[in-house]
């Protein structure tokens, strides 16, 4: 799969941009948290597209965001 670029994303309508980002993020998140992947992806899609693009290129920052999201989700579900 070719890397997602800002110009590829900008060519799509806003709602579709989140869809595209979600399709890229979901498998990465699913590998770490199979049961929470849908919810975590939903949370991360609230982040700016430009930041999501950077996260897709940087596994470390993606992982730390995922852990942050899991912590928020666990508190939220209590």
């Amino acid at each position: 799969q070719e890397p997602l670029t800002a110009s590829m994303l900008a060519a799509a309508p806003p709602q579709e941009q989140k869809q595209i980002l979600g399709e890229r993020l979901y498998p990465l998140i699913h590998a770490m948290h199979p049961f929470l992947a849908g919810k975590i992806t939903g949370m991360l899609l609230e982040i700016d597209n430009s930041e999501l693009l950077l996260m897709l290129e940087s596994p470390e920052s993606l992982h730390s965001k995922i852990e942050e999201a899991v912590a928020v989700l666990q508190v939220h579900q209590m």
């Binding site: 309508p13 806003p14 709602q15 941009q17 989140k18 869809q19 979600g22 399709e23 993020l25 979901y26 498998p27 992947a37 849908g38 919810k39 992806t41 939903g42 949370m43 899609l45 609230e46 700016d48 597209n49 989700l73 939220h76």
Partner: peptide, 22 residues
């Protein structure tokens, strides 16, 4: 509470029902 359904769940292959970037 309206927050019960937060966050919206992403399902691969289905149209995203959440909010677009503002």
């Amino acid at each position: 509470s309206s927050s019960v359904n937060w966050p919206p769940e992403f399902r691969p292959g289905e149209p995203w029902k959440g909010y677009p970037n503002i």
